[in-house]
Nucleic acid binder design. Structure first.
Lengths: 214, 214, 214, 214
DNA sequence: GATGAATGAGACTTCATTCAT
DNA sequence: TATGAATGAAGTCTCATTCAT
């Protein structure tokens, strides 16, 4: 019986945590770390500031936990995209579009992932977790690159991780520039721009001969 | 004589301004806009917070002026790089390396240029200046692309600005990822990574046939 | 039960608000709006400045709330006086004496009602409330004038509001002069002076023939 | 010769003082005591803040000196009005209208005269001077009342000073109410309102029988 | 005399965090 | 557990006054 009630309690506790995290996510996303206040979060969660301290050690941990959630959300996008059937190119494009879609669907959330977590005063465990989660993206992309080499789509002499990082980095660049409204000044279809870039990049990988570089 | 003394004073005033800007730059770079405080800046400049207000209307303007300086610095890198002789590829690479070098030399400063200045409460004149300065990079790159098309290096049907933005965006992505230490976990020569990406990208532009995309 | 505790809490909250308002009133009255500081108020209320912000949005609102209280207090004087039985003259005199008494009892408080509330940054609701409260005095006096005309005490051709404003204005003048200690230099019974003035004024209204003015 | 140069210097000094006072008057009138800053005054006078301290001991003294000037200005209005020919009523009305005109011509200046000088940290001499100047108005009015009694216009049993203070007080009341925009809400000709009041008041003095009051 | 940069105290305000209830 | 009032430190900004030049 004790166990039953304990579980019951545990569940309720988790509910409250989720509830707070949900509110925190909204506020952090909207205001950013500094401008978000525990009061606003508490207000949104319809609890009091004091209650937050029952479940979280403070603002920093709360922020980190929200980030964790967002990382998981993002990875769910990637996971889904990674399961799409098709040739290598289609799979890469699917992955890229998933990242773009996530950015579009959760604009402010995406911003949070770029935070420099080192400024927060976090316990080591959380820091590592966040770092680990941030690496997931590379894993997903790398996997496709590896498949691509197996299938002869990419030359075997190129390094998987380097290609994956290269692809991801450029994608992030587009998101970053888009975020700061750089493209707003021009009459440009953002998605098309990214697709073209990936096409050029893939094409380049396939065609580029190292000796040319000499 | 009056003129002489007036100049003398003007120079001294400029010295002080530069001195404050220097301190502000350090602090803003290290802490970011929100976390930087006038007190910290004043402390670093070995003055009082009040003294800052003799030269600047407030935190926002101070921040903006620091950004202006950094933009100018960055543009000096670009300007120098844009004057390098060589073929189109070499010129693009020279430009890219200039951006990398700037990022390396002024790591934290580069971050500031990404700030969303619209959140600051700036006089219109300053806002415009910053916006204008921020566009310079695109101009530099676009110019090379245009030359490249003239010389037959790039296909004539590709849009100059789109290519320039695309190139710049991917570069920014690398810088961004590097900033957040993504590459630190891997044994990767950052510069090589970027060079490879550009090579693939350029090669892709030249070789990519639109019909393939169908 | 919930209701009971909620009420309890509400009451306590009101107590605290009243406590702060009391301190604020003292300080504002003594120093005026500009010279009063939240620190002084907090000190007097034996709390910290921050605590004030739990109950009030800032200095302006605090000031406005104090004014509201004073207006209400003043209106309670007027209300009581307006219920006095007697002929028109006695009723006017009763009203005038109420104003004098209020001024005497709450010397500095009275000053605050003269504030130009438009310089404060108040929510519309508060602004309107204050404006409304400030008009009350005229209403009370006007009502007596109207009765006076009905009873034939005043000539029917005189405008109610003009007479009321005229009476009130002169009263305010006496208060104002008294405030600045003008009468202190002379050996004068302030109340008698005002009574005489009102007597002359009333007598004048009754006797004055417009044609004389030609 | 020394004397000549000394005088020259003295004159120049006075010029500067006047120049500063002029600027100070403008700023104090516009902003009020607290909101006026020495910098604004210095700016308007096209000198530096430091220079002000050569001629004045500080902000308070500067304010007081400005008030002195305004008192003198006001008294010049009264002086001129007091010299008007006509019967007693006309002379009183002339005096009243002069006060109204002064208030109209120098709206903000008039406000300053109402300041509670005791909050300023002034040397005794200045305080007394200000007090003395503030009494002038009563003198002017009293003189007419006295003449009025001599001529049989007013009953001989009424006290001169009391009548003068009474008249002046009510006038001040109208100005005060007008200042705070009380009349703005009503469609009222301010000057007419005041004239009527004075007429009633004078009429009342002449007609009012003390025994009625019993 | 005059300058004006600099000070230093103090203004209002915000907020993460604590703690008595 | 939960409350929410209160704290205390810190934030930006203002300004009368001083003082080296």
């Amino acid at each position: 019986m004790t166990t039953f009630f304990a579980k019951q309690k545990e569940t309720e506790r988790q509910h409250r945590i989720d509830h707070i995290l949900e509110a925190a996510k909204t506020v952090f996303m909207e205001k950013g770390y500094k401008n978000a206040t525990l009061r606003k979060i508490a207000l949104k969660a319809q609890i009091t500031t004091g209650a937050i301290y029952v479940y979280f050690s403070g603002k920093d941990e709360l922020y980190a936990e929200v980030c964790k959630q967002i990382f998981h959300l993002m990875n769910s996008y990637l996971d889904k995209a990674s399961k799409v059937d098709g040739d290598i190119k289609q799979r890469i494009m699917s992955m890229a579009m998933a990242i773009l879609r996530f950015e579009k669907d959760h604009h402010d959330a995406a911003d949070m992932l770029a935070a420099n977590f080192s400024i927060l005063n976090l316990p080591d465990k959380l820091s590592e977790e966040l770092s680990e989660l941030g690496s997931q993206t590379t894993y997903y992309i790398t996997r496709i690159i590896i498949d691509g080499k197996k299938e002869g789509f990419f030359p075997p002499d190129k390094d998987d991780v380097r290609l994956a990082l290269s692809l991801w980095s450029s994608l992030e660049g587009f998101l970053y520039m888009n975020d700061y409204g750089i493209f707003d000044k021009y009459d440009i279809d953002f998605e098309e721009l990214v697709k073209d870039h990936i096409n050029y990049f893939i094409c380049g990988i396939q065609q580029y001969k190292e000796e040319e570089n000499a």
